[in-house]
Design a protein around this nucleic acid. Sequence first.
DNA 1: GTCTATACTTTGATAGAC
DNA 2: GTCTATCAAAGTATAGAC
Lengths: 191, 191
Amino acid sequence: MTRTVFEKADVIPLVAEVFRELGYEGATMSKITARTGLSKGSLYHFFPGGKEEMAAEIVADVERWFAKRVFEPLERDDPKEAIAVMWREVDAYFRSGQRICLIGAFALDETRDRFAAAISRYFRRWVDALQDALVRAGVPRGTAAKLAEESVAGIQGGLLLARGLHDESVFARTLAGLEERVSSYLPKPGR
Amino acid sequence: MTRTVFEKADVIPLVAEVFRELGYEGATMSKITARTGLSKGSLYHFFPGGKEEMAAEIVADVERWFAKRVFEPLERDDPKEAIAVMWREVDAYFRSGQRICLIGAFALDETRDRFAAAISRYFRRWVDALQDALVRAGVPRGTAAKLAEESVAGIQGGLLLARGLHDESVFARTLAGLEERVSSYLPKPGR
DNA sequence: GTCTATACTTTGATAGAC
DNA sequence: GTCTATCAAAGTATAGAC
């Protein structure tokens, strides 16, 4: 008999995928046990607070991932390079449009109110970090603010439309279009 | 004693608002009765098929609304004028960012699979109608395709980001940015 | 077309054995 | 740390009176 023993760090991404696919309300305990292979006993062992605690930890985990791979580079590294890294990381994270943004999905219904602070912090930091990088790259502040907001919204919209149309290539084109547009505003050898 | 008697046509927008706010799974019968004031008896009278039938009729209703106010004008009327009408109607429909797109929200989780055909038809027609109008307005086909996809994705992303940030002005800026961008591609007195 | 009362299922959560 | 068994609450849906 094979028995798999998990640590919490292994469990989070597993459960996260279920919430991502089904949404907060759709992710029932029985669906989570069925799709992860973990029993209710195990799940409540890791998350005594139940669903709410699970989702909160998942949101925090997503936030940490983006902070490390996207936000911090934008805030700290060479801006043009960090922006290039962003397009690459975002494409990989969302599996070129096959995956949606869990935090974006939570934002759309009243699930938002449960995690309002974390959700707005996530989007706020993304927009601000991108804007900051653009300014450091030489883009005027006002233009940078517009481009940053447009990019984050565009990414979310591209994911949504790709899913709605059952056509992941929509996301690839969205990302390529945004990258080209942003690049055209970068001074020097950009355009 | 006041007793309100409804017709189905009055009930649909009422119930639609609950689905829009709570999502398909979040919109439980008791929440629907609580928020609409209609009892379960009335609801099952109008929708014998229960939740699934309600949501299907709501999706069809949204589709009809957009067909009449947005898609048909884009397909039929003076293209530049129809595009201008689109920005105006979309802003009004989504209450300048205070409301989200029910069909977009359905697209994000597995609710999509229940209504896959209607959802993809809605987005497909929107993108195609806009592209068609742009072509008729003199924009090259490839550019028009890109702009149309970008606009529909942008609108959805703007709604999502506005909600995530608790800041409806994001949607106003998104819409203004898209309109300006699209206009810049229109020949003649556009730019 | 409205409603309340009821049947039955699923849900979230707990207890306790291994 | 894993699991199964159990419970109260909430879920969908139905029946039938007005």
